[in-house]
Design a protein around this nucleic acid. Structure first.
Lengths: 150, 150
DNA sequence: TATTGTTATACTCTATAACTATA
DNA sequence: TATAGTTATAGAGTATAACAATA
């Protein structure tokens, strides 16, 4: 059992690395945006409100890295920090019009690149089953994290 | 289609990040070894011969990073570079007895941690289907890479 | 006191590229 | 010329921790 799960882990890491690199290269070339920035902007755009700590919890990056990443998004003119009336320790993050526009342009590129690498490699039903399993694993791992397990 | 595949990609990245972090923390605490070092040593141990470029191709890290990582494994006394009689531009990498011993100790820790996070979260058949899909995706992505596609 | 950041240090990775030695 | 590897730079991530402001 343990060895099969180990093989799954190694394949998971290899697939993630290569898919991520492919998407990153494509987004950089087409829109001057890294895959990491794309993900952060996507999270900011889809949440009702978003603080730096929300990015940390969603992506499992460190607070320092998230703070600096937001600095860079702000410097590029894609994101703003606004005062949070409910808690003045934090800021509310939002995309600027330029940021929203860029994200809207980048989204089809992102989706095309992922689809090109994935669709057809495994059958539709197998892909669906994989998607369901990964979603369940994600939920479980995030639950453990929220439970303070690190 | 594209959006479902996008969701799969995001879940894949989140699962990989959290699983990798969990394994890394466990290996560090129990054996003073990072997950990256574990993987490199595992590759060196299972190959008949191993050069720096073989590590690069398997893990999709850069040549510079691989060279420095091997420096660190050597400095820790876990790995050796030996002259390659077939091609004097490269070295043949091998684990020292200390490195082999550490890897043998770390392997059950690694497998336990992965199994603890994965087994029971999805059913056995679903896990098997996921493993098969990931293996197919890995193979496809590596084939594209060997074809020189980046 | 605990939480939400920001900032700093040291280390590892990234991309890129110059460079050496060998094929 | 091309390949294998080392080395260097700058930028971005990691862990860790000190710190300020607020809850």
């Amino acid at each position: 059992m343990a060895t099969e799960v180990t093989q799954l882990f190694i394949d998971l890491v290899r697939v993630e690395t290569r898919l991520y690199n492919a998407v990153d290269a494509r987004l950089r070339a087409a829109h001057g945006l890294t895959a990491g920035q794309y993900q952060l902007m996507q999270i900011i755009s889809e949440r009702d409100t978003c603080r730096v700590l929300d990015l940390v919890q969603e992506t499992a990056i460190t607070v320092g890295a998230a703070s600096k990443a937001v600095d860079r998004l702000e410097a590029a003119g894609w994101c703003r920090r606004a005062a949070n009336p409910d808690d003045r320790r934090s800021s509310l993050l939002s995309l600027t019009p330029a940021g929203s526009g860029l994200l809207a342009q980048a989204r089809p590129t992102f989706e095309e690149e992922v689809a090109a690498r994935v669709v057809g490699v495994v059958t539709g039903p197998a892909l669906q089953q994989t998607a369901i399993s990964l979603a369940a694993l994600r939920f479980s791992l995030e639950r453990h994290q929220r439970a303070g397990e690190a």
